[in-house]
């Protein structure tokens, strides 16, 4: 791919970059503001124990949202990721219980995640089938396959050294370390590398990207493969936290992940967004869910709130784009 194409893509993004910063600043502000307000109503919310549980328990959503953000930025969607994480967690746990080396039980989910998602990406990119059809089909294949193979049996007696999430690095729990590291690496890679910029170019305008020397098809396959990789890492963080792995797919997980990406500022029209935003949004959503309990709102309202949040962000994003487009035309 030519250097000029990359420079062009980077320039095209430059105007929007200030807005990314503001979207992320806004989210960070919301995370802190919400903590202050809820802490004021119920000081127990700010207990270190609660805040660290909140981060630990939701790090995997932030990690999965990194890959989802890439998929959405490239102009696609994936609703199979929740089911995939459920399947990979079961496979990983079963391997560990069956006595496979721990490293194998950690690595297999990564490999399988990449394989399943890359295959979906190839069908989307080369056979031109809409991502929603492919991933809706895959969702049911994974979900139905998991229950019919395992019969819904739970995995217990996991070996002690399986629990990667229990480790910590410099007193920071491993899930948080992985979340921060994955977000930082993905953010830098997407911002500065040629293949990272190619994701934005493909999502912004696939035809223009092609003319600039980007191969949109290969980019889409790469994006899905990476999404599978992050789903694998999310699985590790998720599964190694559990003492019992239920062989079912976590209900509504794909919606939580998509919400984190969209609320994090990833435009559903493709071409715009950052993973720093999606990680902050994942934390914000977890915080909101936890806050509901502390201000005595029934947890059954969580899903409605999440739905309202995604709807409001999507509408705001589109209105903002239209206003900017209108300004652009009038010049």
């Amino acid at each position: 791919m030519s250097a000029a194409a990359i420079a062009g893509a980077a320039r095209a993004q430059n105007g929007g970059l200030r807005r990314f910063a503001s979207q992320e600043a806004l989210l960070a502000l919301a995370v802190i503001g919400l903590a202050v307000v809820v802490g004021f109503i119920n000081p127990r919310f700010l207990a270190t124990r609660n805040l660290s549980d909140l981060l630990l328990g939701n790090a995997y959503i932030a990690i999965a949202a990194i890959g989802m953000s890439m998929v959405i930025i490239s102009g696609n969607i994936d609703i199979s990721v929740g089911a995939l994480i459920g399947v990979l967690a079961t496979i990983s746990g079963s391997l560990a219980v069956a006595g496979a080396p721990i490293l194998v039980s950690w690595l297999v989910p990564l490999v399988l995640g990449v394989a399943v998602m890359a295959a979906q990406g190839a069908v989307v990119a080369y056979l031109r089938i809409p991502a929603i059809v492919v991933t809706l089909g895959m969702l049911s294949i994974l979900k139905g396959g998991l229950i019919s193979v395992t019969g819904g049996k739970w995995i217990t007696d996991l070996p002690q050294n399986f629990h990667l999430a229990d480790l910590s690095f410099l007193n920071v729990p491993m899930p948080v370390v992985i979340m921060v590291l994955a977000t930082a690496l993905a953010a830098v890679w997407m911002r500065y590398s040629a293949s990272g910029r190619a994701i934005y170019a493909t999502g912004g305008n696939a035809e223009a990207a092609r003319l600039c020397g980007v191969n949109p098809q290969r980019t889409v396959v790469m994006v899905f493969a990476l999404h599978g990789f992050f789903a694998g890492i999310a699985t590790l963080v998720y599964a190694t936290q559990l003492r019992v792995i239920q062989s079912t797919t976590p209900p509504g997980l794909e919606l939580t992940v998509i919400t984190a990406s969209v609320v994090g500022g990833v435009s559903i029209l493709g071409g715009v967004g950052t993973v720093v935003g999606s990680t902050l949004a994942a934390i914000l959503i977890a915080e909101i869910t936890s806050a509901l309990v502390f201000i005595n709102v029934s947890p059954y309202w969580t899903d409605a709130l999440r739905g309202g949040l995604i709807l409001a962000t999507v509408i705001a994003d589109i209105l903002r784009r239209q206003r900017r487009a209108a300004r652009g035309w009038s010049k």
């Binding site: 899903d303 999440r306 309202g308």
Partner: peptide, 16 residues
């Protein structure tokens, strides 16, 4: 996207 969002919202309302 609209109907993914309302999928979450309407199911959430049913639960709430």
């Amino acid at each position: 996207i609209m109907t993914i969002a309302t999928l979450a919202l309407y199911r959430g309302l049913a639960e709430g």
